[in-house]
Amino acid sequence: MTKRRNLAPWLLVLPSALYLAVFFATPMAQSFALALQDSAGSWSLESVQLMLGDPDFGRAVSATLTLLVLVIPIQLALALAMAIVINKRLRGTSLWLYCYALPLAISELAAGIVWVSIFTQRGWLNSILQSLGILDRGVIWMSGESYWMLIGIIVVAEAWRATSIMMIILVAGLQSIPDEYLEAAEVYGASLWQRIRRVILPMLRPSLQVALILRVILAIQVFATAVALAGTGLTVMSQQALDWANDIDNDNVAAAWAGLMLVISLTATVGILWLLPVREEQRQ
């Protein structure tokens, strides 16, 4: 009887472990293998070299990383602002939370198109600015000519789409900070900004760490938003992997791209863990 009871958790975990072994671990190993083989199947660095030699290589990497570097701080600030507003428990807290969480379930592609409707030449932004008399003529926001304008637009769209997940994690983190700490800080004369800096951010660190890692990893995979908004005006790493896999039909180079993205993801994760260490006693 004792024996049977101890086996139960193993039996319950087993199916998922097997599934991940087949559909996660195996393809991952194969991905590395593919990246380190040429298209004929023999071991070589040819695929990696093809990737590096691609004229789009530099463009894709720099666009992805630029987007990442711009969007993460903006999202962090927005998510923190939302979380603090939610935690303030204004009237209708659940309504505000629902509103801020809306984009959580919106796909990258839909989000991209939503912002197309705003930034397109005869779109909402020009429309509103002209009706208000701020502009005489519509500005061409989404032009392949202006790289930085495209980057800016994608940053806005990504900030809109993917801030919710950070917000939710931070709200949950904030709620686990007892009000007494903030009240105590207030009694001892801390202003709102001081409370954020001295109490909220340090105590929120475990949540911040998770939120940042999750967002950075997803930002490295940015794809459909960019495609919808920039078309061919700009290319990102995921786009390159997809092109090599589908259009050029060279899975080896596509796998090399995947490997590169993994390396960047892991580097970023380690970097965040290093920059934002969480002491063991802060974990729950």
């Binding site: 991940l20 559909f23 393809p27 790493m237 896999a245 490997g259 994760t269």
Partner: peptide, 16 residues
């Protein structure tokens, strides 16, 4: 598993 990009799984799976 969440640290690994979808890309890395999709391509070998397509082959498989």
């Amino acid at each position: 598993t969440r640290a690994f990009p979808v890309v890395i799984l999709s391509i070998p799976l397509a082959v498989l």
